[in-house]
Design a protein around this nucleic acid. Structure first.
Lengths: 215, 215
DNA sequence: GCTCGATTTAACCATTCGGTTAACAATAGA
DNA sequence: TCTATTGTTAACCGAATGGTTAAATCGAGC
């Protein structure tokens, strides 16, 4: 035999299943999704799901981890870097919006999952950074706080709590996607108009945000 | 008999069931919730649920409608009123945040539901305003747009698309609640600290927002 | 071509879930 | 008190669901 150790499944099949699960879980949520649906979507027998992933729950976790890892790290890296604050704002907006344009359903899916299963919030941060949330947060807050302090003392910025800085920035980027269906219905946007809407926010959002904290 | 017409159920029981359903549906989502759970929570037999509401689906709709009607109308009324724009911002922030402090789980629930069932978005606007979303949106956009135009021409405001005005304002208010669990874990907030965080945003948010659109 | 482990499948199983039914309890009008 | 209507329940049902199993198929190495 060729196998070097215990697990050596067919990676292509595993990937196909994971992709199918991704599609179905995002559409219906973990509790609304049916393993049969996933199997069909993957063009595979239902039992194979359990061969590769032990259970629906494990499969759901794998999908959730992948989703979390897809969104969070890039932004967090920028925020925790030593770039200037204004530069951070511009880069976060740019990265986040282009990332989300590629995966518009992820925010809704992730929020929904976290909402219905408290454990998901830990899985989220672990998948995204391999650390407990408090660790990430503490580090992040310390960095941003000291940068704000410096800028404020230099008279280049109004005082703002680091928490607000982070929450405001992420809210403005992510919520339009999380509430996408609602906004699009309200504002009469179709798919294409929504994309254009977001594209133009990539220009306007940083200025809007920066004006909010400049003296 | 006393009945004037078809339905005259025991309103107290009906309310108890609705409240129980509210609790369970918000905790687990419509597809994750079990009718048995709801019955237990209401201290009632499972069959009684079907006596008052025909099916789980109907019950879920009733709960969703009530949730939508609880959040949306107040804000929409302010936004569509003829108050000055700055006044609108202050009042929306104030109303929205105090409303959400009373029902912190509603945004997550509503977003999640809308996300997993496209039809919910129509139910949302119908329950909230009795109109189709485009109608509400068109009216709203027209109002805000003309106000912005006037302010811009008076040199009191930077040009901003009405869509951005609305989306930014609502994002800053609602997202902290929708992503509450995530933010609280990241920022190391407990229940009490979260409340304080929101309280202080009631002061700071309007200024932050207005600076973003003032020349 | 044969062997043996890895992969894949069809059929099956136990449980759960939403929903139904038929009977019982309570209440008010006559 | 009798009766009719409404409110409530225990027991049940069929379908769907997650999961298991045993057999079939495939593919590399001999």
């Amino acid at each position: 035999m060729v196998k070097s150790s215990g697990q050596n499944r067919d990676k292509a099949t595993e990937q196909r299943i994971l992709d199918a699960a991704h599609t179905v879980f995002i559409r219906s949520g973990t509790s609304g999704a049916r393993t049969q649906q996933i199997a069909e979507e993957a063009g595979v027998n239902k039992a194979l799901l359990h061969y590769y992933f032990r259970s629906k729950d494990q499969l759901a976790r794998a999908v959730f981890r992948r989703a979390a890892a897809e969104l969070f790290p890039a932004v967090m890296q920028v925020l925790a870097s030593d770039a200037q604050l204004e530069e951070k704002v511009r880069r976060v907006v740019d990265i986040e919006l282009s990332q989300l344009l590629k995966h518009p359903y992820l925010p809704g899916y992730i929020l929904s999952e976290i909402n219905h299963d408290p454990e998901r919030v830990l899985q989220f941060f672990e998948a995204a950074a391999g650390l407990r949330p408090e660790k990430i947060g503490a580090r992040l807050l310390a960095t941003i706080r000291s940068q704000i302090k410096a800028e404020v003392e230099a008279g280049k910025m109004l005082p703002i709590a680091a928490e607000d800085f982070i929450v405001n920035l992420l809210s403005l980027c992510i919520f339009p996607f999380a509430a996408r269906t609602m906004f699009s219905a309200l504002l009469g946007q179709d798919e294409k108009q929504f994309r254009r809407f977001i594209e133009h926010r990539r220009n306007d959002l940083p200025d809007f945000f920066m004006r909010g904290i400049r003296p």
